[in-house]
Nucleic acid binder design. Structure first.
Length: 480
RNA sequence: CGGGGCGUGGCGCAGACUGGUAGCGCACCGCGUUUGGGACGCGGGGGUCGUGGGUUCAAAUCCCUCCGCCCCGACCA
């Protein structure tokens, strides 16, 4: 019995991931362009679903979309000292065009704070212009040393929101609102990926920003994936680009800006959180195809009666279920079962002569792979049954991921427990150490403070390193 | 950028040490039999052996150059 080769997770997690990407037909290596990938239709469809989920929320919270240039004058990047320091190593430049060397090279945007800042300076005059709430869907480029499909590629797709506010409090409110109501809500509800929301440490915050918040998810190899970030940029970029406004008292003030983004990395998160050794698992709310129907027949007579039954059964699915009928000839049903399992379709409906006879169908759920997840269901009421099943699967995936994270999160009291904890998951502990202490831990244990969770116990404890009394707990982990 | 591996039909590989003009599996095409967990038989098509140079009567094979990709590490959404 030939089997597609997916390396088991236990054996080699990193290879498992690449096998899933490859075998589920998500992406192709762009062999001719270093560090880039081709999003194949299956992978791109996931991105489109992500875009829809986010775009709806972004607009529902009062933002509008716009688009800024891909190329940024190099000098723009220089205007914010910390920003250029953070991004310089990974920017690509265009130095020649139209057959001649450019007087000033352009950089290909690694992010758009600077060019957007330039325009915001023109657009913002009065407090009445604020808040300015704009989002853009774009590609960006960061010349990464070590690319991996979806998780880290030289060119990637994302959305970046850029807003301007009159007060620090407004900017902070925006930053947190995005974190909770847009990113958190989307990831947990649509992607079924539980996240820990919190503040980044100084070392890990956005280059040039005031403070950064992020959403961290745990992958099945216990490593943390930063799945989204929301930055309060303070007045740093307003000063660098002269974004000012006249307030009600007729005094000119620097504005407060924010930026926030999530990228195609989310596809990697989806894969690594939910998939198994049989292949990809796509959560129903995100799935471009939620239900695949596999008709079974031996001859033309059976074929027509089976396809007729399929027609009847699926008659009221449009608008309620996203589905497709796999009537490719000359492929055995068994082959199709395995293929759709590999591709992560949440539910499979099998319909053969026996089912026509008995007014049943066989329903297989992807969250329970193989025959175990299969049961016989009457055709009557099937649509409602499937809708419920999809909801159930969505919930099961979320619960499973949450339990996994909780089972692998260790609350520790002593520093000597840290090494072992980050080996097997997240370590949660009181922390009052310095950036230098973090640096040392990163060198020694390859672990970093992923986030300072917004949810804190509210009671004081002892820092695992310094022994100081503190109320702040942090999450240590190894990161992607 | 350091360490390792690899470039041969679409994919995965063998052939290389010992030079003689390219082969296997899967996929693909045709016909027939099949079809409830990855079907089978027969027939067929498809390869500038990553690039450039060198050695040789002769190079996938030996030598040199360059390019690319993957993996592992330091940097990152």
């Amino acid at each position: 019995m030939p089997k597609e080769t997916i390396t088991p997770r236990q054996q080699d997690y990193s290879q498992w991931y690449l096998d899933i990407v490859q075998n589920a037909d998500m992406a192709d290596y762009a062999e001719v362009v270093r560090g880039c990938i081709v999003f194949k239709p299956t992978g791109y469809a996931i991105w489109e679903a992500i875009q829809r989920g986010l775009d709806d929320r972004i607009k529902a919270t009062g933002h509008v979309n716009a688009y800024f240039p891909l190329l940024i004058p190099r000098s723009f990047l220089m205007k914010e000292a910390e920003h250029i320091e953070g991004f310089a190593p990974e920017v690509a430049e265009v130095t020649r065009a139209g057959g001649e060397d450019l007087a000033e090279p352009y950089v290909i945007r690694p992010t758009s704070e600077t060019i957007i800042g330039h325009f915001y300076a023109k657009w913002v005059r009065s407090w009445r212009d604020l808040p300015l709430l704009i989002n853009q869907w774009a590609n960006v480029m960061r010349w990464e040393m070590r690319p991996r499909p979806f998780l880290r590629t030289a060119e990637f797709l994302w959305q970046e929101g850029h807003t301007v506010h009159a007060t620090e409090a407004d900017a902070e409110r925006e930053t947190l609102m995005i974190l909770h109501d847009v990113y958190g809500d989307f990831m947990e509800r649509d992607m079924a990926v539980p996240v820990i929301k919190g503040l980044k440490t100084e070392r890990e915050k956005f280059a040039g920003g005031l403070r950064s918040y992020s959403l961290e998810a745990m992958m099945q190899d216990y490593r943390a994936l930063q799945s989204g970030t929301s930055h309060n940029l303070g007045q740093n970029f307003a000063r660098a680009f002269n974004i000012t406004f006249t307030d009600q008292q007729n005094t000119i003030q620097y504005a407060w800006t924010t930026s926030w983004g999530v990228s195609t990395r989310l596809i990697g998160a989806m894969i690594m959180v939910h998939s198994d050794d049989e292949g990809l698992v796509v959560p129903p709310r995100l799935a471009p195809v939620q239900v695949v129907v596999v008709p079974i027949y031996k001859n033309d007579t059976e074929r027509s009666s089976v396809l007729q039954a399929v027609e009847q059964v699926t008659a009221d699915w449009a608008g309620r279920l996203r589905f497709k009928v796999d009537d490719r000839p000359n492929l055995t049903p068994g082959f199709k079962y395995n293929e759709w399992e590999l591709k992560g379709i949440p539910v499979r409906v099998e319909l053969g002569p026996r089912d026509v006879q008995q007014q049943n169908v066989a329903v297989a759920r992807r969250d329970i792979p193989g025959r175990e997840g299969k049961q016989i269901v009457p055709q009557a009421g099937l649509t409602a049954y499937l809708e419920t099943l999809l909801t159930t699967i969505q919930q099961v995936l979320y619960d499973r991921a949450l339990r996994f994270r909780e089972d692998h999160t260790y609350t520790i009291q002593r520093f000597d427990e840290l090494a072992d904890a980050v080996e097997r998951g997240f370590a949660r502990c009181y922390w009052a150490g310095s950036s230098e202490d973090e640096q040392r831990i990163q060198s020694d244990l390859k672990a970093t403070i992923r986030v300072i969770p917004l949810e804190q116990p509210g009671t004081a404890g002892t820092c695992i390193l310094t022994g100081k009394e503190t109320t702040q707990q942090v999450i240590f982990g190894r990161a992607y």
